[in-house]
Design a protein around this nucleic acid. Structure first.
Length: 219
DNA sequence: AAAACGGGGGC
DNA sequence: GCCCCAGTTTT
């Protein structure tokens, strides 16, 4: 028998210790009650990209593409010019225009507040759909990105091989109070301390509870 | 299961 | 110069 993972202690510790670090872009947008459409666009743009890059180009983009209809007025070439620095720009531009077209045609130009409807949109997987639900609408959901997946396995809290598997396990074991905050907190922890390689365990506030599964080197 | 999409930033 | 980045889709 092994001790159950002390998720309450860990999450409450993170909620106090991570408050000093900058918030991820989408969490800041959610705190400012930004529209679900902006949340969705920012999330698509941030795929495999540092969200600070998205933050840099977002003001110029939303100045001319504040709604699905407005974004559809842009040519693919013009949209690429606006989002170029985030990378995967051709793919993302086509995806955004396709999404806007479907929102206008099938959802009265609104972002649907429904997991399955979001998953039906092109370029929207479980992480993006859950982030729009939680950050855009304040609805229940668990966003499992690479940070949440890596850190939960490193802790020994879950034993999974893909982020989607991690989400399904967390839905069974993670107390509801942490469904929304876990993503932002572990992104901050992952970016600043619990790095993919050579994590800074000596300054980690929850080191005492970590099983360090798969950690080879640390500082 | 692996490749493809990609420029920008950290070290 | 090399590695990584709030993933998803296609092969």
């Amino acid at each position: 028998m092994t001790e159950p993972f002390p998720i309450d202690t860990v999450m409450q510790t993170l909620q106090t210790t991570m408050a000093d670090y900058p918030q991820p872009l989408v969490d800041a947008m959610a705190a400012a009650h930004t529209s679900p459409f902006h949340i969705l666009v920012a999330t698509i743009l941030s795929l495999r990209t540092k969200d600070t890059l998205t933050a840099q180009i977002a003001p110029a983009l939303f100045a001319v593409a504040d709604t699905p209809e407005a974004m559809l007025q842009l040519s693919e070439e013009r949209l690429i010019e606006l989002i170029y620095p985030v990378g995967f720009y051709r793919n993302k531009a086509r995806t955004l225009l396709h999404i806007c077209q479907l929102l206008v045609e099938q959802h009265q130009s609104d972002v649907p507040a429904d997991l399955d409807a979001l998953l039906a949109l092109p370029g929207v997987g479980r992480k993006t759909a859950n982030l729009v639900l939680t950050a855009g609408f304040g609805l229940p959901g668990i966003c499992v990105d690479i940070h949440v997946h890596r850190i939960c396995n490193r802790w020994g809290y879950v034993h999974t091989s893909t982020p989607d598997q991690t989400e399904m396990v967390l839905r069974q074991v993670l107390p509801a109070a942490y469904w929304i905050p876990i993503n932002g907190l572990l992104v901050i922890l992952g970016q600043n301390i619990c790095h993919p390689t050579s994590p800074r365990c000596s300054v980690c506030p929850v080191e005492a509870h970590c099983a360090r599964v798969g950690v080879k080197r640390s500082r």
